[in-house]
Nucleic acid binder design. Structure first.
Length: 295
DNA sequence: GAGATTTGACCGCA
DNA sequence: TGCGGTCAAATCTC
């Protein structure tokens, strides 16, 4: 009885909190929609709008569940611990591709990613002498369009809040889908798509001769660095972005840039600046971004 | 049920 | 032979 009463009280409190959170998220979304002026960097508006929409969806689902009148959605399955190799793979399994079977074809348009392209994770590997595993992504359209673009993401050992991202290969899929679907203006879209597909090293603001044999740039300091400052001593969660190094393109591949970003969701930012917006205008955009607090 | 992620196995290269 | 990159079945999420 007492248990049921306290459970009901907790549920009531949770319901109230989630309701309040939903109202806040709705207000945020309204503000963001109102602020989608042409002067605002489109990628930031996209991320925050998406975030607000996601908060709303989560709140709605939580509210449905808390209302518990039978109409709410059932809770999801608990994530099971990974199976052991013996459990999952008791014996050798021949590869499907090796047997000549066709690869399944997929049409995937729903997942929006941070740099305007759709990536699918295909592997993760512990790297020797590295604390963090390296994650491998390929273009979602690898099989549909034969797009061979890949990227590797690895958490920085120096600063775990940063991620080193390396891009390989050209996008031949022409699918800057996220950009297209959220209404980037044509110029921005053209910049992003063209330059990601481009393998022109000379677009970087430093001479290509500084590229070694797949080694880091000679620069001892980050080529561009930005850490958002504290304001008035009050604690605010900030996003820190820096470009660490540039590597020479592996044989047969396009140029790659190692970019660090405090959040994988914001990788588009350093790459965007790196390839197209070096210079004062870049910092104008960054300065606008600084005003966004992620409290 | 479709599609994404996880993760051990496989493979090529140095 | 060891390491890094990729594959693909199992599992998870929606």
């Amino acid at each position: 009885m007492a248990l049921a009463a306290s459970t009901g009280q907790a549920a009531s409190m949770a319901f109230e909190l989630v309701s309040r959170g939903r109202e806040s998220a709705a207000a945020l979304e309204a503000l963001l929609q109102g602020a989608s002026a042409p002067t605002a960097p489109p990628c930031f508006g996209l991320q925050l709008n998406e975030l607000a929409a996601q908060i709303l969806r989560c709140c709605d689902r939580a509210l449905d569940a808390l209302q518990g009148d039978g109409g709410g959605r059932q809770g999801r399955k608990r994530r099971l611990p990974p199976c052991t190799a013996a459990q999952r793979k008791p014996e050798f399994r021949p590869r499907v591709l090796a047997s000549g079977a066709e690869m399944p074809t997929r049409v995937e348009e729903r997942r929006m990613v941070e740099d305007g392209f759709m990536w699918r994770k295909y592997g993760q590997k512990d790297i020797q002498n590295s604390k963090y595993p390296r994650e491998y992504f390929r273009c979602t359209y690898k099989y549909d369009k034969g797009c061979m673009a890949t990227r590797q993401v690895q958490q920085s050992e120096d600063d775990p809040s940063l991620y080193n991202v390396a891009y390989f290969g050209d996008h031949t899929c022409g699918k800057g889908s996220a950009i297209t679907t959220v209404g980037y203006d044509d110029e921005v879209q053209k910049l992003l798509v063209n330059n990601f597909g481009s393998s022109s090293v000379s677009r970087f603001p430093w001479p290509s001769s500084s590229f070694g044999d797949n080694v880091k740039s000679e620069a001892s300091q980050p080529l561009q660095a930005l850490c958002l400052p504290e304001e008035g001593g009050e604690h605010r969660e900030k996003v820190c972005i820096k470009v660490e190094s540039v590597t020479a393109p592996p044989v047969g591949l396009s140029s790659s840039a190692n970019v660090s970003c405090a959040s994988p969701e914001l990788e588009a930012l350093p790459r965007y600046f790196n390839w197209d917006c070096f210079g004062e205008s870049s910092f104008d955009i960054i300065n606008e971004f600084i005003n966004i607090d992620l409290q």
